[in-house]
């Protein structure tokens, strides 16, 4: 119950903000009868209506994960974000090995397996991408070699 209500409220505000920012869209002198504002505002209105229905008639709560699993999920998101930033400056191999190992550990907490999975995936995928598929990946940061 509560989950749907909260999500519905959030969605409602997002939809209203979306409509508000759609009204700010600049129109140019070359305009058609509909213009660039109308369709986004229509979408926002339908979304707001659906969100309201979710608030008024919520479904039963899903089984949310508890305690430690949230931490695992949070760690995973942080790792992926850091990985996204690291991929270009740090080269492929090292960030991939670390990120894959941490993700593997979050799925199955076994440090040895996780380290093996990280190292294996990083080197294996690099070879596949670079030599079998011919993608232009950089293994290590440029300064090191």
């Amino acid at each position: 119950m509560a989950s749907d209500r909260i999500f519905g409220l959030v969605a409602l505000f997002v939809a209203l903000a979306y409509i508000a920012s759609a009204t700010q869209v600049q129109t140019s002198f070359l305009s058609d009868p509909v213009g660039p504002k109308a369709f986004p505002m229509l979408i926002g209105a339908v979304a707001a209506l659906s969100a309201l229905v979710m608030v008024v008639r919520p479904d039963p709560n899903p089984n949310w994960p508890v305690g430690k699993t949230w931490i695992s999920l949070g760690v995973a998101v942080v790792v992926l974000v850091v990985y996204a930033y690291a991929l270009k400056p740090m080269g492929f191999v090292v960030p991939t090995a670390i990120a894959a190992a941490i993700l593997s550990y979050q799925i199955s907490p076994n440090a040895r397996n996780a380290a093996l999975a990280g190292a294996g995936l990083s080197v294996g995928l690099f070879i596949v991408f670079k030599y079998a598929l011919g993608l232009g990946l950089v293994a290590f940061p440029k300064g090191l070699i």
Binding site: S104, S108, A117, G120
Partner: peptide, 20 residues
Amino acid sequence: VPPWVLLPGVTMISFVGIYS
């Protein structure tokens, strides 16, 4: 294939794909 190899692998392939 255990999921602790499969899923990190899927993630890394996704990253490389989108990055490329």
